[in-house]
Amino acid sequence: MSIKSGQNLKIFAENNTQKTVVFPVKNAKNVAIQIHAEENSQLDVYTIFKGESSMKMDFDIQKNATVSVFHLTKNAEFSQNDIDITLSGENANFELYGLIFGSENQHHHCQSKIIHAVPNCTSRELVKTILSDKSHCVFDGLVLVKKDAQKTDSQMTNRNLLLSDNAKIKTNPQLEIYADDVKCSHGATSGQLDSEALFYFRSRGISEKDALQLLISGFAGEILEKIKDEEVKQMMSEKQ
């Protein structure tokens, strides 16, 4: 399904169903998508950003439902994805995996707000960026655990690989917890390619270019292996 600027969409994953939706978002701005995952449903959502695109997504995840979101950006000049998630039924699960490639003068924003409103829900967020040239990226992640959301289990991680001195990342992982019996973690790391690893590969005959590609694929691999849709996986695995 191709998405147009200003489009408003509502998606329902009905009770006890399993569904996968793939959204190619190419030169589409101010797109709004509301997603309801009803009880015992399973939903995989892929958003693939191209060109200059911005989108707002709202998720309501009900009892025993599981939602996985893959936020993927490659060869996009500008991307903005604001994702709001409410875990509103017990034993609901949410996962967000992000993989953002930035190059040239690109700007990318990935914003997420995960609200744990009820007890016994889990959320996982792992966003990786690979930034070269003068590309910029902003990661803004908030996990909000409400007072009643005891036994919440939440992890949020942002990892950034900066391939040039002029690439920039601004990362802001936040936790706000009002319950007293929860397991939550959050963190961010940013770094350059490991020069030791590069030398190790080159000392085995692998050219500098191929070694870089291997190391970048290795960094992205943790996200790629989570992608169940083979076509999407292939597209994200190809050389930039």
Partner: peptide, 11 residues
């Protein structure tokens, strides 16, 4: 060197 993410066989 330890290289997370890159499979030994691929390397």
């Amino acid at each position: 060197t330890v290289i997370p993410g890159v499979n030994n066989m691929t390397f």
